[in-house]
């Protein structure tokens, strides 16, 4: 199986879906001539031409809204947000228009749009560029939210997202773009809403997604080596729809849960998970559900300190040991 980067995996998904369906168009800032601010769309303009790969002005409310309108007539726009942090200037288009139009029209209008781009901290760009809005997005019924952690997942999930008839928000990670992994060529489609057990274990379940999966896997190795603790790592992959069954099955096996997320703690994805786990598997729990999040403050700039604000293997390890104590 070819080993390619997360960035290339996304690009392959885009190229294959552009090839497959003439209604798919890629629009966003710097996606065409510039080859993508993070080079995700590199080479697509040359291959598909300016009608399919479209540079937009810096005008998120305008072009995202335009994509929502175009999707109503059957176009399948894949809109790139250079950073998901910029969703705030297009909030009305994303969460009033895309999320609600099917409902308010009594099911008459669909909005098969994908909005994708990176949503992460850890790159020392300060609070304005470091938002992780998956909880905010997933709070809106009508939308789907995907946060892939590996190249293979990124490709397979993006292909599903583009084929989906509901609006799908796809949250990538600038730090993962260069990460490499095995990715099947061609028709590799992963359904939304299926979690993946990235590491099997028996003593505790770490429920996580996105880049925090990698920190959790690193911490799980340390737990095994240094503390003889066997951690199972469940990667949600999709926030909504949510594969809670895979989480509950793991909890039934390990009886201890640590949630790891790059969210601020208040009303995070982890808050929802903790509610559901205690509600549906209370009798399985041998300890209170524990959670590790980003330290609750706007993203700090200072590079060595930002690494400590976010989840990292040492912080995950410490939290896991607290849970096991």
């Amino acid at each position: 199986m070819p080993v390619i980067s997360y960035r290339e995996a996304i690009r392959h998904a885009l190229a294959e879906e552009l090839e497959r369906d003439a209604n798919v168009v890629v629009l966003g800032e710097e996606v065409a001539q510039f080859n993508g601010a993070y080079k995700v769309t590199e080479g697509l303009l040359a291959k598909f031409g300016p009608n399919r790969i479209v540079d937009t002005p810096i005008s998120e409310a305008g072009f995202i809204g335009m994509g929502v309108g175009a999707s109503m007539l059957g176009i399948r726009p894949v809109m790139e947000l250079m950073f998901w942090s910029f969703y705030s200037v297009a909030f009305d288009q994303i969460l009033n228009n895309a999320a609600n139009v099917r409902y308010m029209s009594g099911g008459l209008i669909n909005c098969p749009i994908v909005i994708r781009g990176p949503a992460n901290g850890g790159t020392n760009v300060g609070a304005t560029h470091s938002h992780t809005p998956e909880n905010v997005l997933a709070n809106h019924p009508g939308v789907k939210v995907v946060v892939p952690s590996t190249p293979s997942d990124a490709k397979g999930l993006l292909k599903s997202a583009i084929r989906d008839n509901d609006p799908v928000f796809f949250l990538e990670n600038t730090i993962l773009y260069g990460d490499k992994g095995e990715v099947p060529e061609g028709e590799h489609v992963i359904p939304l809403g299926v979690a993946d057990v990235k590491r099997a274990g028996t003593d505790l379940t770490i429920v996580t997604y996105g880049r925090s999966v990698l920190h959790s896997l690193a911490a799980a190795d340390l737990l095994q080596k240094e503390h003889d603790v066997s951690a199972e790592v469940v990667d949600l992959r999709t926030i909504r729809p949510l594969d809670i069954d895979t989480v509950l099955a793991s909890v039934a096996k390990t009886h201890r849960v640590l949630i790891v997320e790059e969210q601020k703690p208040f009303a995070s994805v982890g808050s929802q998970l903790a509610y559901m786990i205690q509600r549906e598997a209370f009798d399985e729990l041998d300890a209170p559900i524990h959670r590790l999040t980003t330290v609750d403050a706007p993203a700090i700039y200072s590079p060595p300190i930002e690494a400590e604000q976010l989840p990292n293997p040492q912080r995950v390890l410490k939290a896991a040991l607290e849970l096991m104590a």
């Binding site: 305008g62 335009m66 175009a70 007539l73 009305d92 009033n96 308010m104």
Partner: peptide, 28 residues
């Protein structure tokens, strides 16, 4: 809304429908 009559709403937020109409023109 009545998409079968090319009527796409009916939108509640002042000005929010204008990018949508532009998007429909883009699709055309």
């Amino acid at each position: 809304f009545a998409p079968d009559r090319n009527f796409w709403g009916g939108h509640g937020i002042v000005g929010g429908q204008i990018p949508l109409g532009t998007g429909l023109a883009y699709a055309l």
